[in-house]
Write a protein that binds this DNA or RNA. Structure first.
Lengths: 158, 158
DNA sequence: CGGAGAAAGTACCAGATTCAACTAATGTAC
DNA sequence: GTACATTAGTTGAATCTGGTACTTTCTCCG
């Protein structure tokens, strides 16, 4: 028998959905308006910028950004078309390829990061106390960990 | 000058993104697998089911589900095609129309709700203590409220 | 070795989402 | 009451996403 959510739980759950949706829309809007980048683009640039040699294997990048391989492939294609990154083939594993940040990509990130970070600060950090934000982070860490772990298990069970 | 996120803040922020993304994927997967509904479909059915006469004006439904009008219009079209709801014209305002839950739509909701609620419980409520979940809800409420309020203001400023 | 199976990526296709343009009805101001 | 701006909602094209099938390369094990 299903145990339903009580009204409080329901409301919290809906707030979670609303917070994420509104936040994502807003941050995306700001980024797109001022720098012609989507959040997804931005995430990719960030991950590459943080990596050794400003490059990552496609799969690693997909995993880091929680995108499907297919989606990432399309997206990298687009970013390559606009010149923010390039693909390079991988010497050790000739099936593989790297996405590599170009100078233009790095510059795009440098330009857009202040917008994004300021957005996150304004809409999240400034709205919460330190402990509230920490609690949010902790809860989300647990949720993410639980799902990741579970899907590892079901993969293992195959 | 931009004030960057420190590593802890960064990590919490990324957990928030990860939690939402993984959760959404997972819940969507469960719903789609077993009931051939997306989360978005489900949300629409829920909102209609909660409304007077199991009907809502398109704009109200769009607002409730945080969807754009265009998106909602397409989506309602699809749900109409599968028979889960119908459109009815609005007598008071002849520009307007209602989305109305059909018997089949109600049944689809009755069937799928246990899957969804169980999913939310398993992946969220069971993973957190009562107070952790409450903290999550409270933080999200504040975030959502802040963004809504801000965009109201900027609308007002027009 | 060599053959079966797994992994990395891409390509293709179908479905979803956005954007801008559009129709039709309503509201408002003179 | 007629013209202008607003609002409700839809439409179609362009873009984005996700699933699956496919190619190439690697790995493992006999």
């Amino acid at each position: 028998m299903t145990k339903w959510l009580n009204p409080d739980e329901q409301q919290s759950w809906r707030s979670f959905i609303a917070a994420w949706t509104l936040l994502n829309n807003q941050l995306n809007f700001e980024l797109q308006c001022r720098h012609d980048l989507t959040i997804a683009d931005y995430e990719i640039l960030v991950r590459l910028s943080e990596s050794e040699g400003k490059r990552l294997r496609m799969s690693d990048l997909a995993e880091a950004t929680l995108a499907s391989r297919s989606r990432l492939s399309h997206q990298v294609g687009r970013l390559e078309a606009t010149g923010l990154l390039t693909r390079e083939e991988c010497a050790e594993d000739r099936r593989g390829s790297f996405a590599v940040l170009t100078e233009a990509g790095w510059q795009a990130l440098v330009d857009s990061a202040p917008t994004h970070v300021t957005g996150v600060r304004t809409h999240v950090l400034d709205v919460l106390s330190k402990s509230e934000f920490k609690a949010l982070g902790d809860a989300c860490r647990k949720i993410a960990a639980a799902i990741s772990q579970e899907s590892d298990q079901s993969l293992g069970r195959r």
